[in-house]
Every structure is written in structure tokens, then in C-alpha cells.
């Protein structure tokens, strides 16, 4: 059984009458990329900051490498790398200087070659002479990741590392996170991008209003809570839509195409056989497997747009 790196039990953080984190349990195992997914205000950052030893819980316990985050964090701090949600580099420090600085804080002497290697890893080698304040948003985050890695941590917290970045910069960061996973690092990632969690995480927990709604591997979640496959019947027309409704299928009609929701328990092959027997005419068909987005919709009852929950 894999070593437990992070272990939280009954974690609660209260502000006045509001529970920002509400009786949360979680375990993260060595070498996995664990993603906490949820809309803004779900309590992700509060949770992550408690786990980083930067905020005290109101109740409950959290252990990192077996050490209590409130009492003994100093014993494990050098084994943990952190990229906060609001990361900004120092204005007048260049990337190589920032990495050397951070290495010094972790008590490491770092060579120019190692600095270069880290900068190349995060694709910032060409920016080695630029002050922090002049880096773009994506470059700043990448520098933050390089700084988080400089202490050679076993556990890395990445709190919404791609929020606000353009798609290209986001993909660039995904590659880095993939590489961290491949290197056997334990990564705790918070995000409100469903495709990010689906792409990167070995396990995902969906969080809403301070509580874990559901957790598991993306495949498990999709299979259990995705709600089945969607089949698009091309040019089935209004007649097809009416026929499918009569057959008891929930459908939508758009541009002469009909999209049918096939229940999770029914195989697509059986559904298509039934359609063909019923005489519904269509020119072509395509299937769409449910995604984490469907899981989220089914479990939370809304969709997320840039972190905002739309009910």
C-alpha cells in the first residue's frame, strides 16, 4: 500500500457563521497527482493553506508526512514546495536570482548549471535577464513552479496554477505538471478547470461549499457519476426528435441534429440497435463519452465558467 503523504480528518475552518471548510477528510498518497476541483469560494485555497501550515484549522487534524501541520510543520517544511494562488515574484529580482534565493532559503547551494536546468524545465531560460515585474502572467507562474521545485520537494502544492492564463500558457504548465507526476513527485493541485483535473490528476475530489462532494479517479467518477453516453444523430430532424421522445429518451434538437442521452447502465451498441429498429432516420452518428464536466454537473447541479458556478 502506498505511503500516505497527506492525511486530513474532520478538517473545519469557520469564519463567523460560515464554514469555509466543512468537516473535510482526505488522503493523498505518495507519487500521485491529486486534484481538488471546485468553483471559486468552494474552500480549496483555505484547505490548501491549512495543509501548507499557513493557516490554522478551527477543528480537525491535518498531517503531512505524518507530522501535524499546526505543531510540527517545521520538521517537514523543507520537503514541501508551494506555489500559492496569488504567487508574484519579487519585482526587481531576475529569475536565476530568484531561484538562487529560494535555494538558499532551503539551505541548498545551487550551481549555475542547476539553475539553468530549472529555468529550461519551465521554459524561462531565455528570460534570465528580465526582472520579475516584467514577466508575463504565465512566465511568473512558471518561475513560481521553478522556485517551488528548487528545494527538491517530495510534495508540491500548486494552488490554481493556471488561473487567468491563456490556453497556450496553460498547456505549457500542464506539461510541467505531467513531468512532475512522471518524476514520481506527489502533487496536490487545486483548480476550477475541469479539463485540467481530468488531464492531470490520478485522483480528483470535487469540492463545493467547503465539503467534498465526491472523490476518486477521473475514470471512476465518470463511470459512476457521468450519467451515461451522449449520441448525436446527424440530420435526424424534428421527426427523429419526436420519435426519440416517444421512446422515452431525453433528447435535445439543434441544427437538425438530435443529441440523445443514453443512460449509464445501457450500452451504446444496444441503444443504436433499438434506434435502427424504430426507424428513426439519420445520416450519420457520433458518440460523446461523458466527462468530468458531466460529473460536476450531475453532482453539484451547475456548470463552472472560469471558476464561477452557474446553477
Amino acid at each position: 500500500m502506498a505511503e500516505v503523504v497527506l492525511d486530513a480528518k474532520g478538517l473545519t475552518k469557520t469564519y463567523g457563521d460560515m464554514n469555509a471548510v466543512d468537516n473535510l477528510d482526505l488522503q493523498v498518497f505518495k507519487g500521485e497527482v491529486y486534484s481538488m476541483l471546485g468553483p471559486n469560494g468552494a474552500g480549496k485555497t483555505t484547505t490548501v493553506e491549512i495543509l501548507e501550515g499557513l493557516r490554522n484549522p478551527t477543528s480537525g487534524t491535518a498531517k503531512v508526512f505524518g507530522f501535524d501541520v499546526q505543531k510540527d510543520y517545521d520538521k517537514v517544511r523543507s520537503r514541501v514546495g508551494v506555489l500559492p494562488q496569488t504567487f508574484e515574484p519579487w519585482d526587481r529580482i531576475r529569475p536565476p536570482e530568484a531561484i538562487e534565493y529560494w535555494a538558499g532559503l532551503f539551505g541548498r547551494k545551487i550551481s549555475k548549471k542547476e539553475i539553468r536546468g530549472l529555468l529550461e524545465m519551465v521554459d524561462l531560460a531565455h528570460k534570465d535577464n528580465v526582472w520579475g515585474e516584467r514577466l508575463s502572467g504565465g512566465e511568473k507562474r512558471r518561475l513560481g513552479i521553478a522556485m517551488a521545485l528548487v528545494g527538491e520537494p517530495e510534495l508540491i502544492f500548486l494552488d490554481e496554477p493556471t488561473t487567468g492564463l491563456d490556453p497556450q500558457a496553460r498547456r505549457g504548465l500542464w506539461e510541467i505538471i505531467h513531468a512532475l507526476g512522471d518524476a514520481g513527485k506527489t502533487v496536490f493541485l487545486t483548480t476550477h478547470y475541469l479539463e485540467e483535473a481530468e488531464n492531470l490528476a490520478d485522483r480528483v475530489s470535487i469540492m463545493n461549499k467547503g465539503k467534498t462532494v465526491v472523490s476518486g479517479s477521473p475514470e471512476e467518477l465518470v463511470n459512476l457519476y457521468g450519467g451515461g453516453t451522449h449520441v448525436v444523430l446527424k440530420s435526424a430532424g424534428e421527426e427523429g426528435f419526436v420519435a426519440l421522445e416517444k421512446l422515452g429518451y431525453k433528447s435535445t434538437f439543434h441544427n437538425r441534429d438530435v443529441t440523445v442521452h443514453v443512460p449509464a447502465l445501457m450500452r451504446t451498441k444496444d441503444f443504436m440497435a433499438q434506434i435502427n429498429q424504430s426507424g428513426v432516420a439519420y445520416k450519420d452518428f457520433e458518440t460523446r463519452r461523458p466527462s468530468l464536466e458531466d460529473v460536476f454537473f450531475n453532482m453539484v447541479g451547475g456548470r463552472m465558467e472560469e471558476g464561477v458556478l452557474k446553477q
Binding site: 517544511r77 504567487f87 519579487w90
Partner: peptide, 10 residues
């Protein structure tokens, strides 16, 4: 957030 960032180091 620099204090938090520093707080995450030894």
C-alpha cells in the same frame, strides 16, 4: 502574499 510565500519555506 510574500509573507505566506516565505512562510512556506524553512
Amino acid at each position: 502574499g510574500f509573507f505566506k510565500l516565505l512562510g512556506s519555506t524553512p
